[in-house]
Design a protein around this nucleic acid. Sequence first.
DNA 1: TATTTTTTCGAGAACGTTCTCGAAACTTGA
DNA 2: TCAAGTTTCGAGAACGTTCTCGAAAAAATA
Lengths: 338, 338
Amino acid sequence: MKYITIKDIAKKLNTSVSTVSRAFNDKSDINAKTKEVVLKTAKEMGYRQNRMAKNLVQRRSFNIGIVVPEFVNSFFPEVIMGAQDVLFEKGYQVLITQSNECYTTELKNVQSLENSMVDGLLISLSSETANIDYYQDLVNSGFPIIFFNRTYKEIKASKVLFNDYKWAMFATEHLIRQGYRNIYHFQGIKTLTLSRERRRGFMDAHKKHKITVEPHQVITSGFFMEDGEIIAKKLIKNNTIPDAIFAANDQLAIGAMNVFKNNGYKVPEDIAFIGFSESKMGSIVEPPLSSVKQPTFEIGKQAAKLLLDQIEAGNNHSPQTVMLDGELHIRESSQKKI
Amino acid sequence: MKYITIKDIAKKLNTSVSTVSRAFNDKSDINAKTKEVVLKTAKEMGYRQNRMAKNLVQRRSFNIGIVVPEFVNSFFPEVIMGAQDVLFEKGYQVLITQSNECYTTELKNVQSLENSMVDGLLISLSSETANIDYYQDLVNSGFPIIFFNRTYKEIKASKVLFNDYKWAMFATEHLIRQGYRNIYHFQGIKTLTLSRERRRGFMDAHKKHKITVEPHQVITSGFFMEDGEIIAKKLIKNNTIPDAIFAANDQLAIGAMNVFKNNGYKVPEDIAFIGFSESKMGSIVEPPLSSVKQPTFEIGKQAAKLLLDQIEAGNNHSPQTVMLDGELHIRESSQKKI
DNA sequence: TATTTTTTCGAGAACGTTCTCGAAACTTGA
DNA sequence: TCAAGTTTCGAGAACGTTCTCGAAAAAATA
């Protein structure tokens, strides 16, 4: 395959490379007529711009790297779609990588993206990531990065976050108002800021209503459906059955719900459930799962916008945090029948 | 941010650019000792290769473009992960785009990827795509493309397919053997090869067992859960209730199942269900949905391998079709209780 | 018409690599 | 010790663009 270059066009038209380049780049110092001719013959010849060459001289790749922990749940794909919407329009390509919730592959991904000379990074940390030095160094060196959803308070950088605290509190209060008093919280991985915030919401809701929470009511685990199953089995075995469960995500809630159901417990009569980050699965499970809906698409959009701003601004920008709100979708799984 | 280049290293070591380049590229014509020194100081200086420059001279981007119709269901993400596995190892980056089941954005994506000078393309067509001329031209021009899952028989190119016919037939026979005689088939979008193959399997299973199929037993629609709901509502309204349904994907089956359940029908006693392309949702729905499981990961791997072969081979390759097999997961939704 | 201003263009460097070619510096063998 | 062979290196072109600088051509002004 022989690619047509700008030189070929110049030769054919008996003009200079500069002129042809000018035609493509909307420069002012070119005659409207010649521009038209160039564009026309370029099309005829099947010319296609070589982005690598262009990027090389402009020292920009126009690539944005995205690192997410997984994408089998629809959450991150939706965020990515939001980001792509904004980025595509501005002529950026998106490189998507996924860390499989593993810190080492996450780091490998980031470095691989750096080698590709991405102009910036959108990243959501894996549940395993505990060491943030590498990222902090990168940020400090002036490299544009936006952290979204999964991040650490300690990182000094721009972030797009969901108001986990507020909505966890709402969700918990919803349960309390229904009369539930022995509510357990499945917090997932406890070190993530997001988990801590949701836990804080859970605790403060209780505090507000003057209900004490015993330590055993908050349970740490991973974030998968299997984790929810394991916890449920353990609770059944120990015969410590909550009357309601507020889980840090839908997967945990659904996993536990299935186990309890299979063991003869009725939902929501015996145990009420409420999840987080509304997933498609939550709406088809029996009974439908109440959940906090996050504005996935919007998260992606905001993160992309923030990143582009940061790229534009160069060095004179200061870290910003965008906090987004959601809504509580109450379904059968958490509604006491009267 | 000032990037360290190969020149900086050469200057510092008082050697030539060529030598430094040789050190990085495992060339034979360099002294082992100098190589070591170069590598060491490069590391010290924080050198990072500029892929754009490299790619420019090699006339390769080492980027592979992937185009999928959607990725909110886990099917395509899993395929993509399989492909990434193979491609990453060979030093390729992956550019993922998604067409939203829309032909025009699909085309826009492909062209954008072409501009990025991807070395090859992995593509699964949108349900809307009816015109394949552009793709055929691209293939004919020698551009490496592998079509997977969603494709057309008419396209002359390499493909990675699932044996839809065989497994649709299996699934249908499974229903027939259970004694169901009034089986409906939700075929989704009828023009896709995949739909046609599944339909053929459905028909031939009946033929084999000498059961006639009336035209109204095969229903065309989109591929979403909503489509399944709409069909089910229509069937209920017309009071034409099948005793079993074989759907071209899980979404259709689940959508219909929910509507029937809400209208008092029992699954599988009144109506049995069987889906296709096993999804996570299928296993948590009540009752769990029988489905044909496709080897998603493997599909991605095979497609990537085929693509790399084709890139290596240059012009002397001939179109290949890889046909993969799956398994039938029988769950409650299709098992007659005795 | 002569001068100035504006518009339009071309030459050629630059971006950061790889790669070819030939030359210098070693080894080897007789 | 000298020729031939082998190893190691450097110079500089090339990849396909953009961009700066200055010059030519055209238009405007005096």
